[in-house]
């Protein structure tokens, strides 16, 4: 498993060399676009992490978690992951800020930390994708797109708990 990332890196660069791509120049060109991504996500992340930190220090997150935990424990979910699951389809930045809060308090290797990692890796911001793609072509009647998208999201939430239980604990 530890080999996935290095193997991808080596095979892509080797393949590039075989295809006579100037690999290092191309790498540098791509790295600049990575820097641009960091700048692009900066304002969102600063605004939302500040808001989540305020929620935590004010006691609001503890209050919500306590409210949810009896119900969440009944179905075997840690209560901390519920706010992430609810916010994930609506706001990518908001859910990221909540995930970072969980990483900071419990560590990324905790049960809740692993679950929210799998959840974030296996879902997208459903509402954003729907709005972006349909509005670009001016289609207003989206029929059952949202139902199908949210069904996939719900499945991802359930399976992120299951896979972490089965394989990562």
């Amino acid at each position: 498993m530890n080999y996935i990332v290095p193997v991808i890196i080596v095979s892509f660069t080797l393949w590039g060399l075989i295809k006579k791509v100037p690999v290092f120049e191309t790498f540098c060109k791509g790295a600049v676009s990575g820097l641009k991504t960091v700048v692009d996500i900066a304002p969102t992340l600063i605004g939302l992490i500040a808001a989540v930190t305020m929620l935590r220090s004010s006691g609001a997150i503890d209050f919500l978690t306590n409210l949810i935990s009896p119900l969440a424990e009944k179905i075997g979910f840690p209560a901390e992951i519920i706010p992430v699951a609810l916010l994930r389809p609506v706001s990518g930045g908001g859910s990221t800020a909540l995930i970072i809060d969980i990483f900071e308090r419990f560590s990324p290797d905790s049960f809740a930390g692993k679950i929210v990692s799998v959840m974030a890796g296996s879902t997208e911001t459903t509402f954003y994708a729907i709005t972006l793609y349909y509005s670009s072509v001016g289609v207003k009647k989206i029929r059952h797109t949202l139902v199908a998208g949210l069904a996939a999201d719900l499945t991802a939430v359930i399976f992120s708990v299951l896979t972490v239980r089965l394989f990562l604990t």
């Binding site: 060109k29 791509g30 990575g34 992490i49």
Partner: peptide
């Protein structure tokens, strides 16, 4: 956080640019 993830994000974007250019 942004500073600490910048390195890996840039590195990975570089590798993926090679993937894109080499088809």
């Amino acid at each position: 956080l942004l500073i600490s993830i910048a390195g890996i994000l840039c590195f990975w974007s570089g590798i993926m640019e090679i993937a894109k250019e080499s088809g």
